[in-house]
Design a protein around this nucleic acid. Structure first.
Lengths: 208, 208
DNA sequence: CGAGTGGCTTGATAACCGTCAATCGAAATA
DNA sequence: TATTTCGATTGACGGTTATCAAGCCACTCG
């Protein structure tokens, strides 16, 4: 029933999929590509998260039948599964294991948001960047060579700073063994960077 | 079963109930009093939220059987209902309507965290304070006279600033009709304050 | 090849915020 | 009443970040 009512859509890069303050009509599942969640207020804009396969967005708004708190745009060509909000709510009531999965997904998202809040309230921009790089290094095999994966201005918004400030943050990390060439970052001395970053398992979403 | 295994405890003011990075053994329900959720990192500390009756805390950690991301301390004498984590998880699987309630509570908490993140990334300290006061005014009847309800240094941590900076933020709001005397704030011209604050229903948790 | 484009970087400046130190003031205590 | 205490405030200063402007660089396209 869920699958019957939903449909798979292709979108080009840079397309706005949903707008904040609008009703959450569909639960979105990223099958392929990448999506940026962002929000605006009083002329300012910030990026709240990236969603990669297989990830969902605006689940909470769908469940509460409320408006989106965030907008979403594709970062690249993407395939998105769109499931009508009402179908999600019905399926949840009909299928306990599905509801259980939703609880798990919601709890994880909630905890990630809390971590992000701590990241922003308890760290400077350079520290957030250092931890971002260290996480990427772990995710990419710990070779000491890291691909940023997104444009720097997008990364800046994700880290809660301006592109100018991101440049300066990279410069500040240079004495700690961080070299940047385009989208590729090399770590001469990960331990020294770790000393600055002080990665914390209850803020940063990776182990070791 | 839930009620059988759980117990109601009284705590004095200022007592730490749970510590971050420790396993979530009990779901906590604030029956009476007030609780401050806070977190530390690298010598810094910040307050993430206040919990008043009837509110819960560390629900997500309990459900995922993981460690707390936040610490909790009482702001005043409080009565807390403590429910063993395993009981919560069992009851959830046994009772669909209970699980449904958990979904709702999780989704609300998730959305509140996102709002808070937007509040911090998209506003200055003075703007956050202005919106905080306007929300209190609405909650307290819209009379233009507002009780802060917590010590200023606690409020400062909640708003993500130092006590010194909170003092200066109050001073900055003076030209917008905000007068402070101790814990009581009076709004000479709420509309002028609103013009500065630009309250936004998808950031601030109140409706006009 | 050359001009244009867009992302990135750098510099100058100002706004914002944190830290340290001193002081104020109200409430509790002797 | 005098004193102590502690939260709140103020001033000075430095660190952090945003803004504005200019320049750099790689890539695209004519």
């Amino acid at each position: 029933m869920l699958v019957q009512s939903s449909f798979l859509q292709r979108f080009p890069a840079g397309l706005v999929l949903i707008e904040e303050a609008e009703p959450a009509d569909f639960l979105h599942v990223v099958i392929d590509g990448a999506v940026e969640m962002f929000a605006r207020n009083a002329g300012r804009e910030t990026t709240l998260s990236f969603v990669y396969p297989i990830g969902t967005f605006i689940l909470a708004a769908v469940l509460k039948d409320q408006v989106n708190l965030q907008s979403a745009r594709t970062l690249e060509r993407s395939r998105i599964l769109m499931i009508p909000a009402a179908s999600v709510r019905e399926a949840m009531q009909a299928d306990t294991s599905f509801m259980s999965a939703i609880v798990s997904e919601l709890a994880t998202g909630y905890r990630t948001a809390i971590k992000d809040l701590k990241n922003h309230k308890l760290r400077t921009g350079a520290e957030r960047l250092a931890n971002w790089i260290l996480r990427l290094d772990v995710e990419q095999g710990g070779s000491g060579t890291v691909e940023l994966g997104v444009e720097k201005r997008v990364l800046a918004a994700r880290l809660g700073m301006t592109p100018e400030n991101l440049s300066r943050a990279f410069t500040a990390l240079k004495p700690h063994g961080v070299e940047v060439r385009g989208a590729r970052v090399t770590l001469a001395d990960p331990d020294r960077l770790r000393q600055l970053a002080q990665p914390n398992p209850i803020i940063d979403d990776y182990t070791t």
